[in-house]
């Protein structure tokens, strides 16, 4: 893979939380995500998906190893890398101010990216239409459903037109229509037309299969499988991703406790 075509480069990344008795939240993780591709992180709860995403977003510092976003380290060039990232947390309130409306929240966060108000309003209008949010943005966030808040969270991550999206469980609170809408937005618009790079985590294996160009399965902080969509197709000839996922995770568990 040519370096110039790589959006995210992770090399021997490890993370030990000081108060976690030396247990590694991430252990020697290495991967690359080419520009315009979607990497999906799978794994049981506590496997390190959120830690990995937060390290990419510069919210957590790694213990060792390196991370670069378009050749820049989130630790050394936080301002530059953060301007290139659209971040969407898994938190139920998606990191919004509950007593502000969706629009007030979006206006607030857009200020940090120095977007001119006309482009911002146009971008919000377009995305609100695609995410079926047109009538929700003037309501106080605390009065909205988790799914709607999550969609506004996605809108916020796209607001400054970043080349990379980091989405922590973006399908989590969505109804089937919402899931379909988000998948189409990611697949057709964000990656195919806009050539953005996406790194997302999810527990919805069917959605993972549909949007992923690369799938990484994490368990106890270790990368136990990495497959491209082509390799995945070959692997899944006679089985589903769910069967493959469970087999892979369980096999690791058996090997660990053998």
């Amino acid at each position: 893979m040519e370096e110039a075509a790589v959006a995210v480069h992770v090399e021997n990344l490890s993370k030990v939380y000081p108060k976690n008795q030396g247990k590694k939240a991430l252990d020697q993780i290495s991967f690359q995500v080419p520009i315009g591709k979607t990497l999906v992180l799978l794994g049981p709860n506590g496997s390190g998906k959120t830690t990995l995403l937060k390290i990419l977003a510069g919210l957590i510092q790694p213990s060792s190893g390196s991370v670069t976003i378009f050749g820049h380290s989130p630790k050394d060039d936080p301002g530059l890398t953060r301007s290139q990232i659209g971040w969407m947390p898994a938190d139920e309130k998606s990191g919004f101010y509950g007593r502000l409306t969706g629009m007030q929240n979006l206006n607030f966060f857009s200020t940090f990216y120095k977007i001119d108000p006309k482009s911002r309003d146009r971008q919000i209008g377009n995305l609100a239409l695609q995410l079926d949010l047109t009538h929700e943005l003037e309501k106080m966030v605390l009065k909205l459903s988790s799914g709607t808040i999550q969609k506004i969270g996605l809108l916020r991550s796209l607001l400054h037109n970043p080349p990379i999206l980091l989405l922590d469980e973006p399908f989590r609170h969505l109804d089937p229509h919402g899931v379909q809408r988000l998948r189409r937005l990611l697949k057709d618009h964000v990656t195919r037309i806009q050539k953005k790079t996406v790194v997302l985590s999810t527990h919805l294996l069917e959605e993972a299969r549909k949007v992923a160009d690369i799938i990484i399965i994490l368990k106890n902080g270790q990368m136990i499988s990495q497959l491209s969509s082509h390799e995945l197709k070959q692997t899944l000839q006679d089985s589903t991703l769910e069967e493959f996922y469970l087999k892979t995770v369980d096999r690791e568990a058996k090997e660990q406790y053998a």
Partner: peptide, 11 residues
């Protein structure tokens, strides 16, 4: 509120 990380994820 969970907004600290959202703000600090911006530049």
């Amino acid at each position: 509120m969970g907004t600290l990380e959202s703000v600090l994820a911006t530049p």
